[in-house]
Computed example of a mutant assay.
Amino acid sequence: MTDITWLKASSINFISIVIVLTFAGSVIQGFFRGGSGSAKHLLSMLVEAFVVIVSMFIAWKGVGLVSPLLQTWLKGQNLQVPSVDISALKQAYYTAITSIRDFPLLRFGVLFLLGYLIVKQFLNLLIDPLIGPWLAHRDPYRERSSSIISSISGGAIGSVAGFARALILIAVLFIYVTLFPHSLIAPYIESSQMYQKGAKEVISPFTGDFIADKAPVFTRAVEQEFTNILQRKYEVLDAKVPGNIVDAAKEVTASGTTDEEKAKLLYKWVGSRVQYDWDKVKLYEEQRIWKEQTPEDTFNTKEGVCIDYSRLYAQMARAVGLDVKVVTGLGYDGQGGYGPHAWNEVYLKESNRWVPLDSTWVASGGNWFNPPNFDQTHIKDA
């Protein structure tokens, strides 16, 4: 049973309830504020919306100019991860800086957020002195003398604000469903009649086919970049390759003359020398205790789980000049399901391509060095 089964089983759609409450809450709030208070609140909302839109536009345009300059500057620093032991703080620093340098979507996101916050703060400083005094001014006598009329007009103004808030909520849900159509909650959101009405009659006509056409491309780009950032973490963590691993890697690949031959020799060596550590798995499953280990620990003890196989393989591959990645995701469990898993991808210069391999599964038999349909048993994290 999934976490949202109980939602689907209910005859009440909670998405619709939240949308209705968003609207109703604004009407009630406007009723108690009165006409003057509601008008001021609505104006405040409109000003805030204006500031947000303008800030986002300026930040978006600014990032287009600043992002390539920042990338060029960071590349000019020739930043290399030290091949020595470094602290966790320095590991985080090198992971963040090199990721911002190498991954355009991450760099765009960081610069956009910083630019938006700076521009928004600047615009607020300009606008607050102009409208602040008017918003703060109140006429208690006038409000008391026409309390019923004021409340009714306040409720009417509140309904406008409520409609805007409900529409913003629907827009956020629309974007989520478009970006993640296969998520567990997406069908439940789409089953809401209130959502359908707002999305089909307001959001869709306004956006046209833009989101539908661009969202899948954007989602795939985000997924790929997120995977690359996860890989960068292990590249930084295991940048230092101990001498005994370097010596072993060179000895194992001594007979290899091409990248593919060297990669296969290491694949067979790691897969046949390291034994799967079932005690480590049991400790985590029963007590939620994770026994962290370095590639050198795996090399010395000859025991580990999939991530340990993959990290050791990556270090040995780098020791002989191969470009390699640690990939995390889901692996087929042989019983119709998938579980957390890790494997590698290695770059072969001769054929100019990345190929997958799974040294953990060597002991299970079969060929797991770039076999056909590898992606049917291995699903990358996204």
Rank of each mutant, 00 (worst) to 15 (best):
A248M: 15
K197V: 12
A136R: 14
S192V: 01
L265Q: 12
I211D: 10
E260M: 07
L89V: 14
W290Q: 00
P242E: 15
V110N: 00
A9W: 08
L79Q: 07
Q231K: 07
S67N: 13
H137A: 09
L237T: 15
V202D: 04
T258R: 09
G334Y: 09
F14N: 04
A342W: 03
Y284C: 00
Y313N: 04
V217R: 05
H341K: 07
I185V: 12
T207S: 12
I53L: 12
N352E: 14
V63P: 01
I379N: 01
G109M: 13
W368P: 00
L330V: 02
P181V: 09
V355T: 03
A382M: 10
G339N: 15
F206W: 03
Q29T: 12
K264V: 10
V63D: 05
R144H: 12
F369T: 01
G339T: 14
H341C: 08
E223A: 09
G329K: 07
V54F: 12
D3F: 13
L21Q: 02
L348K: 01
N244M: 13
S351H: 08
W368D: 05
E345W: 00
R144P: 00
A319P: 08
D259N: 08
I86P: 02
I189Y: 07
A24C: 10
S272E: 15
G243A: 12
L169S: 07
E235V: 14
G62V: 07
A199P: 03
S38C: 05
R107S: 02
H341A: 13
L266D: 00
F23P: 04
E286D: 08
E48H: 07
F226R: 06
F112A: 10
L266Q: 01
S310G: 10
K214V: 13
G243H: 08
R318H: 11
S146A: 14
I379D: 02
V81G: 05
K349Y: 08
A249S: 12
S87A: 00
M1A: 10
P242R: 05
L69K: 13
P104T: 06
L357A: 08
D333L: 10
L322E: 04
E285L: 02
F174V: 03
L237F: 11
A186I: 06
F103V: 00
G109V: 07
K120V: 00
G304P: 10
I149H: 10
V51A: 04
F174L: 02
C306S: 15
D247Q: 10
